[in-house]
Simulated assay, not measured.
Amino acid sequence: MANGWAKEGAVQEQIDSTVDDALRRARDQLPRGESLSHCEECDAAIPQARREALKGVRLCVACQNEQDRNQTRFSGYNRRGSKDSQLR
Protein backbone atom coordinates (compact mmCIF):
# COMPACT_ATOMS: atom_id res chain seq x y z
CA MET A 1 0.00 0.00 0.00
CA ALA A 2 1.39 3.38 -0.99
CA ASN A 3 1.48 6.27 1.43
CA GLY A 4 0.35 9.73 0.38
CA TRP A 5 1.45 10.50 -3.16
CA ALA A 6 4.05 7.74 -3.32
CA LYS A 7 3.52 5.04 -5.89
CA GLU A 8 3.07 1.38 -4.97
CA GLY A 9 6.37 -0.20 -3.95
CA ALA A 10 8.17 3.13 -3.39
CA VAL A 11 9.34 2.13 0.09
CA GLN A 12 10.91 -1.07 -1.20
CA GLU A 13 12.61 0.87 -4.00
CA GLN A 14 14.15 3.19 -1.40
CA ILE A 15 15.37 0.24 0.64
CA ASP A 16 16.85 -1.43 -2.44
CA SER A 17 18.56 1.79 -3.45
CA THR A 18 20.10 2.21 0.01
CA VAL A 19 21.41 -1.37 -0.03
CA ASP A 20 22.81 -0.94 -3.56
CA ASP A 21 24.61 2.26 -2.50
CA ALA A 22 26.14 0.54 0.52
CA LEU A 23 27.32 -2.41 -1.57
CA ARG A 24 28.86 -0.08 -4.15
CA ARG A 25 30.75 1.82 -1.44
CA ALA A 26 31.99 -1.42 0.15
CA ARG A 27 33.18 -2.82 -3.19
CA ASP A 28 35.00 0.42 -4.00
CA GLN A 29 36.99 0.08 -0.77
CA LEU A 30 38.23 -3.44 -1.52
CA PRO A 31 41.95 -3.58 -2.26
CA ARG A 32 43.02 -4.30 -5.83
CA GLY A 33 46.24 -5.18 -7.57
CA GLU A 34 49.47 -6.63 -6.27
CA SER A 35 49.99 -6.91 -2.51
CA LEU A 36 52.92 -5.08 -0.98
CA SER A 37 55.60 -6.91 1.01
CA HIS A 38 55.92 -4.00 3.47
CA CYS A 39 53.31 -1.70 5.01
CA GLU A 40 52.79 1.70 3.37
CA GLU A 41 52.46 3.39 6.78
CA CYS A 42 55.06 1.88 9.10
CA ASP A 43 57.24 -0.16 6.70
CA ALA A 44 56.70 -3.34 8.75
CA ALA A 45 56.80 -6.63 6.85
CA ILE A 46 53.38 -7.93 5.81
CA PRO A 47 53.15 -11.69 6.43
CA GLN A 48 52.93 -13.89 3.35
CA ALA A 49 49.70 -15.49 4.61
CA ARG A 50 48.02 -12.06 4.78
CA ARG A 51 49.21 -11.17 1.28
CA GLU A 52 47.82 -14.42 -0.10
CA ALA A 53 44.53 -14.21 1.79
CA LEU A 54 43.77 -10.65 0.74
CA LYS A 55 44.96 -9.60 -2.70
CA GLY A 56 46.07 -5.99 -2.98
CA VAL A 57 46.82 -5.57 0.73
CA ARG A 58 48.84 -2.42 1.45
CA LEU A 59 48.85 -2.19 5.25
CA CYS A 60 50.01 -4.44 8.08
CA VAL A 61 47.37 -5.70 10.52
CA ALA A 62 48.12 -3.02 13.13
CA CYS A 63 47.90 -0.14 10.65
CA GLN A 64 44.78 -1.60 9.03
CA ASN A 65 43.10 -1.84 12.46
CA GLU A 66 44.00 1.79 13.17
CA GLN A 67 42.65 2.91 9.79
CA ASP A 68 39.42 0.96 10.34
CA ARG A 69 38.95 2.58 13.75
CA ASN A 70 39.52 6.08 12.37
CA GLN A 71 37.35 5.66 9.30
CA THR A 72 34.26 7.81 9.57
CA ARG A 73 30.91 6.18 9.15
CA PHE A 74 29.01 7.11 6.05
CA SER A 75 25.59 8.41 6.94
CA GLY A 76 24.03 8.19 3.51
CA TYR A 77 20.96 10.10 2.54
CA ASN A 78 17.87 10.73 4.62
CA ARG A 79 15.37 8.87 2.52
CA ARG A 80 12.77 8.46 5.25
CA GLY A 81 11.63 12.04 5.19
CA SER A 82 9.89 11.59 8.51
CA LYS A 83 9.16 14.58 10.69
CA ASP A 84 11.39 13.17 13.42
CA SER A 85 14.41 12.91 11.13
CA GLN A 86 13.90 16.42 9.76
CA LEU A 87 14.15 17.93 13.23
CA ARG A 88 17.74 16.71 13.76
Score class of each variant (00 low, 15 high):
residue 7 K to R: 02
residue 52 E to Q: 13
residue 67 Q to C: 07
residue 56 G to M: 04
residue 49 A to H: 01
residue 78 N to C: 08
residue 86 Q to T: 01
residue 68 D to T: 07
residue 83 K to W: 08
residue 69 R to K: 13
residue 14 Q to F: 06
residue 15 I to D: 09
residue 87 L to N: 08
residue 45 A to Q: 14
residue 32 R to G: 05
residue 82 S to I: 00
residue 35 S to I: 06
residue 40 E to R: 14
residue 55 K to Q: 13
residue 37 S to D: 15
residue 35 S to G: 06
residue 39 C to R: 03
residue 24 R to M: 08
residue 24 R to Y: 05
residue 5 W to T: 11
residue 82 S to A: 01
residue 46 I to F: 07
residue 22 A to R: 06
residue 72 T to A: 12
residue 81 G to I: 06
residue 47 P to Y: 10
residue 16 D to P: 00
residue 57 V to W: 01
residue 1 M to Q: 09
residue 3 N to G: 00
residue 34 E to Q: 12
residue 63 C to G: 09
residue 40 E to M: 11
residue 88 R to A: 09
residue 70 N to L: 14
residue 26 A to Q: 08
residue 77 Y to T: 08
residue 26 A to M: 09
residue 7 K to I: 02
residue 62 A to H: 10
residue 54 L to I: 15
residue 10 A to H: 11
residue 23 L to C: 06
residue 30 L to T: 04
residue 66 E to L: 15
residue 11 V to S: 13
residue 41 E to T: 14
residue 55 K to P: 03
residue 47 P to G: 09
residue 84 D to H: 05
residue 19 V to H: 10
residue 87 L to I: 02
residue 72 T to E: 12
residue 27 R to K: 13
residue 4 G to H: 08
residue 62 A to D: 15
residue 33 G to W: 01
residue 21 D to H: 05
residue 53 A to N: 06
residue 16 D to Y: 05
residue 38 H to N: 12
residue 17 S to H: 07
residue 8 E to I: 10
residue 72 T to G: 10
residue 86 Q to V: 00
residue 60 C to E: 11
residue 37 S to W: 02
residue 40 E to T: 13
residue 20 D to W: 04
residue 22 A to G: 01
residue 81 G to P: 03
residue 82 S to Q: 00
residue 51 R to K: 03
residue 54 L to W: 02
residue 47 P to D: 14
residue 77 Y to S: 11
residue 44 A to W: 06
residue 66 E to G: 02
residue 9 G to N: 08
residue 79 R to N: 14
residue 76 G to Y: 02
residue 68 D to K: 09
residue 62 A to T: 12
residue 31 P to M: 05
residue 52 E to V: 02
residue 20 D to L: 11
residue 58 R to I: 09
residue 41 E to I: 14
residue 29 Q to K: 15
residue 43 D to A: 15
residue 33 G to K: 00
residue 78 N to V: 05
residue 88 R to H: 07
residue 6 A to P: 00
residue 7 K to Q: 05
residue 69 R to F: 04
residue 45 A to Y: 04
residue 71 Q to L: 14
residue 41 E to G: 01
residue 37 S to F: 01
residue 48 Q to L: 15
residue 67 Q to A: 15
residue 81 G to D: 07
residue 46 I to E: 12
residue 80 R to Q: 03
residue 81 G to Y: 04
residue 21 D to Y: 05
residue 23 L to S: 03
residue 61 V to D: 13
residue 63 C to Y: 09
residue 2 A to E: 10
residue 79 R to Q: 12
residue 71 Q to N: 10
residue 69 R to Y: 03
residue 2 A to L: 01
residue 23 L to G: 01
residue 13 E to D: 15
residue 15 I to Q: 15
residue 2 A to H: 06
residue 78 N to I: 07
residue 80 R to W: 06
residue 42 C to K: 03
residue 5 W to L: 13
residue 52 E to L: 11
residue 15 I to W: 08
residue 84 D to K: 10
residue 39 C to Q: 07
residue 7 K to T: 02
residue 50 R to A: 09
residue 60 C to N: 08
residue 75 S to H: 07
residue 42 C to W: 03
residue 37 S to I: 02
residue 27 R to C: 05
residue 22 A to T: 03
residue 49 A to Q: 02
residue 74 F to E: 05
residue 19 V to L: 15
residue 26 A to I: 06
residue 61 V to M: 10
residue 53 A to V: 00
residue 83 K to L: 13
residue 77 Y to K: 13
